[in-house]
């Protein structure tokens, strides 16, 4: 009832529950996608494997991280390239196979 009277007199401040909800949603986005360091390391190793077929990369200088901002998550990778490899036989044959379809 008092709230009602408050609202009549133009008190419109939001309660703390909406703050709680927002904070909870954000923290759960982080919790639910929490990747263990080992899994992230595996991801990095496999990435290197794939990238190395196309590029010569600087493995020491590379970084792969999950970046959390606001309510979204991004995989941010910085991968210094030493040189672009000549096309490997494998990818060439893949390409020609696709052309032949």
């Amino acid at each position: 009832m008092l709230d009602f009277i408050g609202r009549l007199f133009g008190r419109v401040d939001q309660g703390s529950s909406s703050i709680a909800k927002k904070r909870l949603q954000l923290v759960l986005v982080q919790d639910r996608t929490n990747m263990s360091p080992e899994v992230l390391e595996d991801l990095k190793t496999e990435l290197i494997g794939v990238l190395s077929r196309y590029l010569e990369i600087d493995e020491v200088g590379m970084s792969v991280e999950l970046d959390r901002s606001d309510d979204s998550i991004a995989l941010v990778a910085s991968i210094p390239v030493k040189s672009v490899r000549a096309r490997s036989v494998q990818t060439d044959s893949l390409k020609s196979a696709r052309v032949g379809e």
């Binding site: 939001q14 703390s16 529950s17 909406s18 709680a20 909870l24």
Partner: peptide, 17 residues
Amino acid sequence: DMVRRGDMLDVSDMTDI
């Protein structure tokens, strides 16, 4: 009483989340 005031998460908020 607190849910009505907007000072406690409601059940629908909880199941949403």
